[in-house]
Design a protein around this nucleic acid. Structure first.
Lengths: 346, 346
DNA sequence: TTGAAAGCGGTACCAA
DNA sequence: TTGGTACCGCTTTCAA
């Protein structure tokens, strides 16, 4: 039952001024070692903890980072998003920052940013799920709110600070692997292609195919929310077609599981009759990490991305004049059980 | 480029006192209609928004709700957790509250609550993932921090405010359904049974079986993190045993997908050779909601639970003397494609 | 090395 | 109906 000890009471008990006590507690150098020790002990004894609101008001820094999640992003990216958040949250708490999350309707996103800025709710924000047609960066610059993008905003790569994996390259390498295994009919089950990451993945896929002198077949490319049924239904449809694919490149584990289900339902064997490569965000509840992982995958930890994004943002805030640094992560290409040589033509 | 208009500037521009302006903006009755209108217009024109830190300091309310997520809970419950959060977040923003999330190491959880209380970071908290051996409610009472439990704390049902689905009943009904279909060898793939919800589910399962004069077979009961491989590996092992189950009752869709995969790999057909009932938290990225859902399930929306939990908590905060109301939600039992009569004995 | 006092930007009581 | 003023609890000059 803490009795609400504040600076005033604490300083009275010590026969010191609030100033000195504050300085002692905040590690200012001009305090004598002995005083500092006395202060620390008494603070500990009385269970003193500074009121964050008061400190925030006094310093003008809210010591919080905002994450605005429009409902549509939430729906599509739910699991990925939380993993990212968890990573970021770790960094924040290490640095004494709070994380505030606003889940808003899509048309309220701008207003949410404006409020964060005008009411001083956070010292910076993370921008989630950049789309191709994107303007949040302009708004945030206008609001003078430091931000880091998870992903990239096409066309604003040099003027914004971002952290992203190399989506194009990852999907190019994955496609190359399938081509090397002799697959020529490769299907792409991509995420929604108004999202920046999905566009880049598609480019990587197409580049790889074109480099071998092949032409991407539009009938084998799909784009949608990355649910399990999306993977299953589309794979099923393609597998039953006249000219079915022998391999699938899939944008998410969840959809890949759906694809595997479809393959099973067709009486085929994954990794033998039909190959799958998926992108693996290294989500804790979807482990794909045995000695030989179930799925061959391009893997990149979103959690790590979250940690790093937070670090970039805190650095920007601490040092507003520094150049915007960005981070480009490469995905690992990991061979699992879901790929094998293209079956011989009948 | 907002210029940081504050109350002082605003009131000067209006030739009014800060007091009056504040009252006008906050809807106090003693302000003349005309003044109120003038104030509102000017505030709008200058883009005035009150500084939240200042207001919080003055009112003594932080207008924020805390969610402390120990890493272990995060790892197991990741997708469920975010969905809950999203629901809660909606309620918060409707009421002008912020949501602050702390992801902490397991051994830092208590400290996190203490800080929320002593530094006044939040006016209340939501307790996630109650275990069987649980003491957070005692701590929070001690800290005088209002809270609502998502789930129940066994033994403290009457003294705490909680929202929970009827886990026991849901699993009892699901088991009954399987028994009615003629299944007698039913496997239970449960979540971690030190968690309260998992214990209740198990009880429901066992009760149903015992009521028919059968005995639950320990060989058919498993308990673990609800991952996809957990479902697959355990189902596989059981299906290959001498006396395999003909039906699975599974605690999460993700594991159920794994079970389906195992069934497929054994050359069997889900819903015909082997039945599955899963619990479905109605996660947006795992839809199970076609005309005839893929999985027969007990369904209860976590998102809805989040909304309601937040409402309960805000009500407690607004009216600290009211009796603790709790909410017991019933899951729907929904027939999908994954159940059918027990296959005739050979 | 320490302290007095003026903010930070609001709210709310007491008078007028 | 409006205004003066004392807080809220901490930080941060400026003086001593």
């Amino acid at each position: 039952m803490s009795k609400g000890v504040n600076l005033k009471i604490l300083s009275q008990r010590l026969n010191l001024s609030q100033t000195t006590v504050s300085r002692a507690l905040n590690g200012y150098p001009e305090v004598s070692a002995e005083t500092r020790k006395r202060v620390a002990e008494m603070a500990d004894k009385l269970g003193y903890a500074p009121n964050s609101q008061a400190r925030r008001l006094a310093t003008g820094r809210s010591m919080a980072i905002g994450h605005v999640i429009p409902r549509s992003i939430h729906e599509m990216m739910n699991p990925i998003f939380l993993e990212f958040i968890a990573g970021a949250g770790e960094t924040y708490s290490k640095h004494g920052y709070d994380m505030i999350i606003s889940v808003v309707e899509d048309d309220q996103e701008e207003e949410a940013y404006r409020q964060i800025s005008s009411r001083k709710k956070a010292d910076g924000v993370i921008v989630h799920g950049p789309a191709h047609d994107e303007n949040r960066h302009a708004l945030l610059k206008d609001l003078n709110l430091p931000f880091v993008v998870h992903g990239r905003i096409a066309g604003a790569e040099t003027e914004t600070c971002w952290i992203d994996m190399n989506n194009r390259r990852a999907f190019q390498r994955a496609t190359d692997l399938l081509l090397d295994l002799g697959h020529t009919r490769i299907a792409l089950l991509n995420g929604l292609e108004h999202m920046d990451f999905a566009r880049r993945r598609r480019r990587g896929f197409e580049d790889a195919i074109k480099e071998r002198g092949l032409a991407p077949d539009p009938a084998l490319m799909r784009s949608n929310d990355m649910t399990e049924p999306y993977g299953c239904d589309n794979a099923m449809e393609m597998l039953k077609s006249d000219n079915p694919p022998t391999a699938f490149l899939v944008s998410s584990m969840i959809s890949a599981i759906g694809v595997a289900r479809a393959i099973g339902q067709c009486g085929l064997v994954t990794g033998k009759d039909v190959s799958i490569i998926t992108h693996d965000d290294a989500l804790s509840f979807l482990p794909n990490s045995g000695e030989v992982p179930i799925f061959t995958c391009t893997r990149s930890s979103v959690r790590y991305a979250g940690e790093k994004a937070a670090e970039l943002l805190l650095a920007m805030i601490a040092n507003p004049n520094s150049e915007p640094t960005s981070l480009h992560l490469d995905a690992e290409l990991i061979i699992g059980q879901s790929t094998g040589p293209a079956p011989a033509k009948v």
